[in-house]
Amino acid sequence: MVVLVGLGLLAVPAIAMIWWQWPVRVQTALPMRGPAIEAVYATGTVEPTVMVSVAPRVGGRLTTIAAEEGQQVRRGQVLARIESSDLDQTIEEMRAREQLARAQLERTRSLVEQRFVAQAELDRTRTEWLAAQAAARRAVVQRDYNQLVAPADGIVLRRDGEAGQFVPAGQAVFALACCAPLRVTAEVDEEDIARVAVGQTVMMRSDALPNRLYEGRVADITPKGDPVSRSYRVRVRLIDAPAIDAGPMRSGMTMDANLIVSRREGALLLPNRALKGDRVWLLAQGRLKRRSVVKGTVGTDRTEIVSGINDGETVVLSPPDALREGQRAHGIPASADAQSSAALASR
Rank of each mutant, 00 (worst) to 15 (best):
M1P: 08
V5A: 15
I18A: 14
W19V: 12
Q21A: 03
V24K: 09
R25W: 03
Q27W: 07
E38D: 15
Y41R: 09
V50E: 11
S53D: 15
P56W: 02
V58F: 01
T63V: 12
A67V: 02
Q72R: 15
R74V: 10
A80K: 00
A80Q: 09
Q89M: 08
A101C: 06
A103M: 07
E106N: 13
E106L: 10
S110H: 13
S110E: 15
F116R: 13
L130T: 07
L130K: 13
A132Q: 02
V140M: 12
V140E: 15
Q142E: 14
V149P: 00
R159G: 08
L176S: 06
Q200M: 09
M204D: 12
R205V: 11
A208K: 06
G216F: 01
D220G: 08
P223Y: 03
G225V: 04
D226T: 14
S229F: 07
S229H: 10
R230Y: 10
S231P: 10
S231F: 05
R233M: 07
I239H: 10
A243C: 07
T254A: 11
A267M: 07
P271V: 04
L275P: 07
G277T: 11
V280P: 01
L288A: 07
K289G: 09
R290G: 10
G296R: 00
D301F: 05
I305Y: 04
P319I: 00
P320H: 06
A322T: 15
E325D: 13
I332A: 09
A334K: 03
Q339E: 09
Q339A: 11
S341E: 14
